[in-house]
């Protein structure tokens, strides 16, 4: 059988990747390009006509102060959440790989929040913040207590707490894999050379685990930056829209205010920001990689 003719190649491609190409194109590629087109139209979500309006949607997006406010909040929320998620995950991963009793139990236990979807988690925590923790605070101080969700800063703080709780277990498993990939021999050799425990973490384990850090940072940054489910169920933007993050703003702009063109333009600005962050990360990650 000839394996270098064009017809052979086409046949093989269609058998192995034909359906993949079709689905990937119809769900990701075509909508992406079509989305670019939508940003130049004013579509109301119902009619078949999509009047061309030039760059009006981008002008609207840049003039939309509540969009930029939500974006600012998203930056603050993401920065704090990403740092805390990774710090907590790394510390737990260190402890559950140090050979203590019951480490498999802990690994499995800390992962549990990841099993549950953001909508359900948000409602569970809403109850915890509004009822259980208020009751707890009132018992301790024997006075009147207010829910964390009642103030603007409190609502963002609550979102951060829930995100740390939700993602730490998943990132922990990636760091556990990282710790396990650092060979015992290297650590042993360092100890013989007089390295203390903390020195071996900072100078040996962490540099050798660059891949884990890159992976965890990528996952947490993209997830935090695009968070929607927990935002919707935990705060729904309250109080008075002050805790609406960027993804929620885009959704509301399009599907609630029916400004599909402006919503799509705002989503596209988000994409550009994401792509820049992703690019920086890949670059820094490649540069920092250490070979054992």
């Amino acid at each position: 059988m000839k394996t270098n003719t064009l017809s052979y190649k086409i046949k093989q491609y269609l058998i192995f990747a034909g359906l993949t190409t079709f689905i990937f194109a119809s769900v990701v590629l075509v909508p992406f390009v079509y989305g670019l087109y939508l940003t130049f139209t004013s579509w109301d979500g119902v009619s078949l006509s999509k009047p061309f309006v030039g760059i009006e949607n981008y002008v609207n997006a840049f003039a939309d102060t509540s969009y930029w406010q939500s974006l600012g909040r998203t930056f603050i929320y993401s920065a704090i959440a990403v740092i805390l998620v990774n710090a907590v995950a790394f510390i737990i991963a260190y402890m559950v790989t140090s050979g203590i009793k019951g480490q498999n139990f802990f690994r499995a236990g800390f992962f549990v929040p990841n099993l549950i979807g953001g909508i359900v988690l948000g409602y569970v925590w809403k109850f915890v913040f509004n009822k259980a923790l208020v009751e707890l605070a009132e018992t301790i101080t024997s006075g009147h207590a207010k829910s964390l969700l009642a103030t603007e800063t409190g609502a963002i703080a609550a979102l951060i707490i829930v995100s740390v709780w939700q993602y730490a277990g998943y990132m922990m498993l990636i760091y556990v894999a990282g710790f396990m990939s650092v060979s015992e021999d290297v650590i042993e050799a360092a100890k013989i050379d007089g390295c203390t425990g903390s020195q071996s973490i900072f100078y040996i384990s962490i540099p050798l685990m660059t891949a884990s850090f890159v992976q965890c940072l990528f996952l947490t940054i993209t997830r935090c930056f695009m968070v929607y489910d927990v935002n919707l169920s935990l705060t729904n933007g309250d109080p008075y829209g002050s805790s609406a993050l960027a993804a929620m703003h885009v959704y509301n702009q399009a599907f609630i205010n029916k400004n599909y063109g402006t919503g799509q333009a705002e989503a596209l600005i988000l994409f550009v920001i994401c792509a820049i962050i992703g690019g920086i990360q890949v670059y820094v990650g490649k540069k920092g990689e250490v070979q054992a």
Binding site: T21, V28, L29, P31, L38, M226, A267, F271, A275
Partner: peptide, 24 residues
């Protein structure tokens, strides 16, 4: 080409695709 497109598409947030998906 397919593989590069797939890797690149991983940075596209869902929010960019949801409005065109509903529209299409």
């Amino acid at each position: 080409i397919l593989f590069v497109l797939m890797i690149a598409s991983m940075v596209i947030p869902f929010q960019v695709l949801m409005i065109p998906l509903v529209s299409l």
